[in-house]
Computed example of a mutant assay.
Amino acid sequence: MSLEHVTISLTLERLWQFSLQYYSVREVKDACLSLQNNFHGNVNLLLLLKWLDEQQVSFHEEDWHKVQQCLSRSEALLHSYRELRKHLKHHVSDSLYREALQFELQLEKQQQSDLVDCMNTLPLDTNYHEPLVLRYCRLLGGESLYSAFAEPAPNIANQ
């Protein structure tokens, strides 16, 4: 089949709302955390890939490095902050810990913004091949987690 160039309407708010609702599915959340903690995967990238899969859209194979590169700006900061927050969990009040979680969410949203900006610069095609999420899980060695992501996302308004 020939590739069909497509245009999508990807905005930070659209991806963020999709992510919040999709991540709220217990099996998805558990699989995301496993991908992050056991396979060093990036949850925001996985959520973007799932959104693209839902749109039946893909970027070119040679652009994977660009997508990975756009994460580099925020990944080290987010990882360091996450480790600090986990360490503080048993040493600070619940309210301070909740504030730390909220700040981490803001860092996550900034990372999604970086991903959206990057994605909106790439040529996109209709995806006639395997899902991007499956390719990402396989790349990380976590293909067994794919079953948690294989189902279509719950009907989420304003996708």
Score class of each variant (00 low, 15 high):
L10H: 07
L10V: 10
L10N: 07
T11Y: 00
T11W: 00
T11G: 07
T11E: 04
T11V: 10
L12H: 12
L12V: 15
L12I: 14
L12T: 14
L12G: 06
R14L: 01
R14I: 08
L15K: 07
W16I: 03
W16L: 01
W16T: 05
W16D: 06
Q17L: 10
Q17F: 04
Q17P: 05
Q17C: 04
F18Y: 12
S19N: 00
S19T: 14
L20C: 11
L20H: 02
L20R: 14
L20A: 04
L20I: 13
Q21V: 10
Q21C: 03
Q21A: 05
Q21S: 03
Y22H: 09
Y23E: 03
Y23N: 04
S24P: 08
S24D: 11
S24E: 09
S24I: 09
V25R: 07
V25S: 00
V25N: 02
V25A: 00
R26G: 01
R26N: 11
R26F: 06
R26S: 13
E27T: 14
E27G: 03
E27L: 07
V28D: 00
V28Q: 06
K29A: 09
K29G: 00
K29L: 06
A31V: 15
A31Y: 10
C32F: 03
L33R: 13
L33I: 14
L33P: 11
L33F: 12
S34H: 07
S34R: 12
S34Y: 00
L35M: 12
L35Q: 03
L35D: 02
L35A: 07
L35C: 04
Q36T: 06
Q36G: 01
Q36E: 03
N37K: 13
N37M: 03
N37L: 05
N37T: 04
N38V: 05
N38P: 05
F39R: 08
F39W: 10
H40N: 13
H40I: 05
H40C: 09
H40A: 09
G41V: 07
G41H: 05
G41M: 00
N42W: 07
N42R: 10
N42H: 12
V43H: 01
N44Y: 04
N44F: 00
L45R: 06
L45V: 06
L45H: 05
L46K: 02
L46P: 01
L47M: 13
L47F: 07
L48V: 14
L48R: 11
L49E: 01
L49I: 13
L49F: 10
K50I: 08
K50R: 11
W51H: 07
W51V: 07
W51E: 01
W51M: 10
L52M: 12
L52R: 08
L52T: 08
L52K: 04
D53Q: 06
D53R: 06
E54P: 12
E54S: 12
Q56L: 11
V57T: 15
V57L: 05
S58C: 13
S58H: 08
S58A: 14
S58F: 02
S58T: 14
F59C: 09
H60V: 14
H60L: 15
E61L: 15
E61H: 15
W64Y: 15
W64I: 12
W64N: 09
H65W: 06
H65Q: 12
H65N: 09
K66G: 09
K66Q: 15
K66R: 15
V67G: 02
Q69D: 12
Q69V: 09
C70F: 11
